[in-house]
């Protein structure tokens, strides 16, 4: 089930590239366009823009995937067996899905 070899690498690179783009947008949108996101009201207003919301959810998904995949790469570098790899991957998938669900839930709560 675990993605191995080049495919894992390609996904990591793809999400990485996406993050560079999204983060640039994120920074521009959050710190230059909006008048700061340091208030609760400010954030609500910012997220009410549907384009921003979609980008933020995409950003959230990529960052979680990239982070989990990075942790997995780190553990695989330790030279672990296939079964450990599978376990690690499952655990990381669960953590990732939980984080994603929590993030999406946060959006629904505050909107």
């Amino acid at each position: 089930m675990a993605q191995r070899g080049s495919l894992a690498w390609l996904w990591q690179a793809f999400t990485g590239l996406l993050l560079v783009i999204l983060l640039t947008l994120h920074m521009i949108a959050n710190h230059f366009m909006a008048n700061g996101l340091l208030t609760y009201e400010g954030i609500i207003q910012h997220l009410s823009n549907p384009v921003v919301l979609v980008l933020e959810i995409l950003f959230l998904t990529s960052v979680i995937f990239h982070a989990m995949s990075g942790i997995r790469a780190l553990i695989l570098d330790w030279g672990v067996s296939k079964s450990v790899d599978n376990t690690v991957t499952r655990v990381l998938v669960v953590i990732g899905v939980l984080m994603l669900a929590y993030g999406v839930w946060l959006f629904t709560v505050i909107l």
């Binding site: 191995r4 070899g5 080049s6 894992a8 690498w9 695989l76 570098d77």
Partner: peptide, 8 residues
Amino acid sequence: DNEQGCWR
């Protein structure tokens, strides 16, 4: 082409 090959 695997994780013990050039992708490590």
